[in-house]
Amino acid sequence: MSKISPCLWFNGDAEEAAAFYVSLLPDSRIERVQRNITDSISGKVGTVLVVEFTLAGQGFMALNGGMKKEYTHAVSFKIDCADQAEVDRLWDALLANGGEAEQCGWLKDRYGVFWQIVPTALMTYIGGSDSAGAQRAMQALLGMVKLDIEDLRRAYEGKSAA
């Protein structure tokens, strides 16, 4: 396990959020749930205080902090996707039940956490050796909400969208 892991702040739904996140990606699981042993700002005795979980091999902690705290774009979680089917599946799942789509493959899930759903092919196009193609792919990217690998490829190659 890594020496450094993100801690996500929740207001009573840390266990629900962790269970949702681990359902999305392979090599993910709930490691431990710690309950409050005394009444506190975090909750009553027996309610969930901390959930330690692994998400795609990376350790995380979810904390029920006792009050609502807003996330910002300053910290987001990027998921590298092998293909369009994975982009589509994760995009739809993270947007379900109140998430908000944003430009360039970013979204905010129903818990307020920011994610970047990015095809691994993206760097092939925006960082490719053809600088004009890379520029076209970047322009295509800037016009997208959910990223579309085929549209990025066509832009890089200088072909018009179908």
Rank of each mutant, 00 (worst) to 15 (best):
G128H: 00
M1Q: 10
I117L: 05
A134I: 05
S129N: 13
S42V: 09
A121C: 04
A85K: 15
Q116W: 04
S23P: 03
V51T: 14
S40R: 03
L63M: 15
E86S: 12
R110T: 08
A93P: 05
I126N: 01
G158I: 01
D80K: 12
G99E: 05
N36C: 08
K108C: 09
D148I: 01
N11C: 12
A14K: 02
C7F: 10
W115R: 02
V45D: 05
V75N: 11
T47R: 05
I149L: 01
T120G: 08
N64H: 10
E157D: 11
G43W: 00
V87M: 02
A96K: 14
A82D: 14
M1G: 15
A155L: 07
F60V: 12
I37E: 15
E15H: 04
A161V: 12
A56G: 10
T72F: 06
E100H: 12
I117S: 06
C81Q: 06
E150M: 03
A101I: 06
A121N: 06
D109A: 06
G112D: 04
N97T: 07
A96L: 10
V87A: 06
S5Q: 13
I37H: 11
A18R: 01
T47K: 06
Y125I: 06
F77D: 03
M67G: 03
R154V: 02
G66V: 12
V145Y: 08
G127H: 02
M138D: 03
I41N: 11
G133W: 04
I126K: 01
V51D: 06
I117P: 07
M123K: 09
C104L: 00
S40K: 00
T38N: 09
S28E: 00
D83S: 11
T47W: 02
W106S: 09
F77S: 07
S5R: 11
E102G: 13
C7I: 15
K44D: 12
K44Q: 13
E102H: 14
G128S: 05
A93R: 07
Y71E: 10
K146Q: 14
M144P: 02
S42G: 15
L24D: 02
Y125A: 01
R35T: 10
I79F: 15
W91K: 03
A82N: 10
L25F: 04
N64T: 11
E52W: 11
S23Y: 03
T124C: 00
D130G: 01
Q34S: 13
L49V: 05
A18Y: 03
D13W: 02
S2Y: 05
T124V: 00
W106D: 08
K146V: 08
M123E: 08
C7D: 06
M123T: 12
R29C: 09
S160I: 10
R154M: 08
V75W: 08
M67P: 00
L94E: 08
L63D: 11
V48D: 07
G57R: 11
G112K: 04
D83R: 09
H73W: 08
G43F: 03
R153G: 00
A137K: 04
E100M: 14
L95Q: 06
A18S: 09
L8P: 02
A121I: 05
L147V: 14
D83W: 07
F77P: 01
A96W: 04
A74L: 12
M61F: 14
